[in-house]
Design a binder for these strands. Structure first.
Lengths: 141, 141
DNA sequence: CGGAATCCATGCTGATACTG
DNA sequence: CAGTATCAGCATGGATTCCG
């Protein structure tokens, strides 16, 4: 089910390391760390996902995510904008109106993320079961 | 909770939310948060990736990841084992030998992650360029 | 060698207040 | 409405130390 995407040859295979010019001191680790640093936070993925659907205003965004605070939304938005994943359009009006929209780059992120989300959804029960088994085996943890 | 309800038919589509019994207080956000909590940390993905390639011992793992500390490796391994993504095999010998291997579930994670990593690798330069542009436009930041 | 517990430093996150 | 700045609290990550 879901898009299993590629055939998944290896994980930290050489091609990945070669394709990455992360210039870190690690082979593929840098790439993973890179993507994690980018969308591994609590809200980035949510915001990009919401914006992928349609453009939204600051308040709209805050209303939809809800759990996010004013500060975090601003911070997340700025970071996303900086990475070119989200575009910010400010209208010099009164009251001020700012609309955020996902860029082409931001939309391209949706595909791979969807794959990961699909995996999580598909294997959620399996993980829960594993946790239950583990918890049962080590109750005094 | 009169949730603002779903507003992301594409990204956090209903089927995803339905498939997840994460029992959070968010609709599809929970799924993303869930997967983020699972592999969104600094090392889980790296460890699973390394193990996806082949089984490794504790020391081997620490040597390959390198940047990870003793404590973090143990913690990450335990967490991964708890989720059923990694299997732990301890040999009651002297000196003790413990081998870690990715489970079928752990290997299935490689596919979607690879997609995300591929995205990061492919759009890395685009993001860097965007950052440069942003940084250039906001020097007084 | 592998693991666990402790302690510490840092970062991230959230709440609040103030400005335009 | 949108954004920024400051403060305080919690969580994450790291180093060390002791045990099997």
């Amino acid at each position: 089910m879901t898009t299993t995407d590629a055939a998944a040859p290896r994980f930290a295979d050489h091609p990945l390391a070669s394709a990455s010019t992360c210039s870190s001191d690690e082979p593929a680790s840098g790439v993973i760390r890179d993507v994690l640093s980018r969308v591994g936070d609590k809200w980035s993925l949510l915001v990009v996902g919401l914006l992928d659907d349609r453009s939204l205003r600051f308040t709209e965004l805050q209303r939809k995510v809800d759990g996010i605070s004013h500060r975090m939304l601003t911070q997340t938005l700025r970071n996303l904008e900086r990475d070119g994943l989200v575009s910010r359009t400010a209208y010099p009006e009164i009251p001020p109106r700012v609309e955020y929209a996902a860029t082409d780059l931001g939309r391209s992120l949706a595909a791979p993320v969807l794959g990961l989300v699909g995996w999580a959804a598909a294997n959620h029960e399996a993980i829960t079961a594993a946790r239950d088994t583990y918890d049962d085996a080590a109750p005094g943890a």
